[in-house]
Design a protein around this nucleic acid. Sequence first.
DNA 1: TTGACGAACAATAATAATTATCGTTTACTA
DNA 2: TAGTAAACGATAATTATTATTGTTCGTCAA
Lengths: 148, 148
Amino acid sequence: MHVSPNVETRPFRKLCADHGLAATHQRQVLYEVMQTMPGHPSPEEVYARVKKRIPAISLATVYKNIHLFVERGVLKEVSMHHGSLRVELNSHLHHHMVCSHCKAITDIEEKDLGVLPTLQRLPGGFQVERYAIDVIGICAACQKAKRG
Amino acid sequence: MHVSPNVETRPFRKLCADHGLAATHQRQVLYEVMQTMPGHPSPEEVYARVKKRIPAISLATVYKNIHLFVERGVLKEVSMHHGSLRVELNSHLHHHMVCSHCKAITDIEEKDLGVLPTLQRLPGGFQVERYAIDVIGICAACQKAKRG
DNA sequence: TTGACGAACAATAATAATTATCGTTTACTA
DNA sequence: TAGTAAACGATAATTATTATTGTTCGTCAA
């Protein structure tokens, strides 16, 4: 039996090839579902949607592929430091540098960041309390390790 | 038996009074321990330290009081959206508004933020990949609910 | 196309992080 | 100092995530 190729699959196969990923059915549905979820879905939410199209899919598959997509730059983490609650004494004004490799968090003075956003009226009448800026990149130690 | 009052307790009792908290021994030790931890400790790390001074303390007490301290402004959360992994399609440049009340996350265009930090050499040879800015405040719905 | 091989999958057990419950103890107020 | 609500400790329960394992599937060479 001959089946005509699904034109919709080609961009996805290309995207996988470009990122060094095997183009599996599960990944394609996961990706297509995410395109219909413009917000910031959790793995559980994605799983619930994907399950409608692939009832047999495993939650672990969703987790693994989300991580893989993030690793390859197809998806982006909204927060670099979820995982466990981190707190600090509410002292002077500073922000954070987060290493995307080892996840280490370092303080950075606001003045070392350069010009900052000016407080202003934001869309939707959002009432601003403060800014929290994460500078995401590679810390010195990880740079060294990668070169080494 | 007469015991002279510990001078160190007074600032803490004042701090509690100022924030409407009962000044318990556990809270005092928790607070003092956090003063000796300048980084971004997790609840488990704080618990381990506090346990050295109050071996009978419960982990749940540490969690409850950390949350209470955050709620009252004594401590600050390093990330407003830890908890569960959140991802988004790696599309155009934007940042996030996070409601400190309901935790809702909304996108905001970079241009709507005003002037941004200029990329520059950062302390410790940190190699910058990108910025992630959270504008923390109260969303319109929560403002309404509080007034209502 | 076909067959081998490694990657990906589903199922599920295990772990980590956090919250809820409940009986007891403690701090604050009159 | 006694009454009362809040806080505490112990621990069960829940939620989020990761690891394991046996099976299936996608890719590439013949």
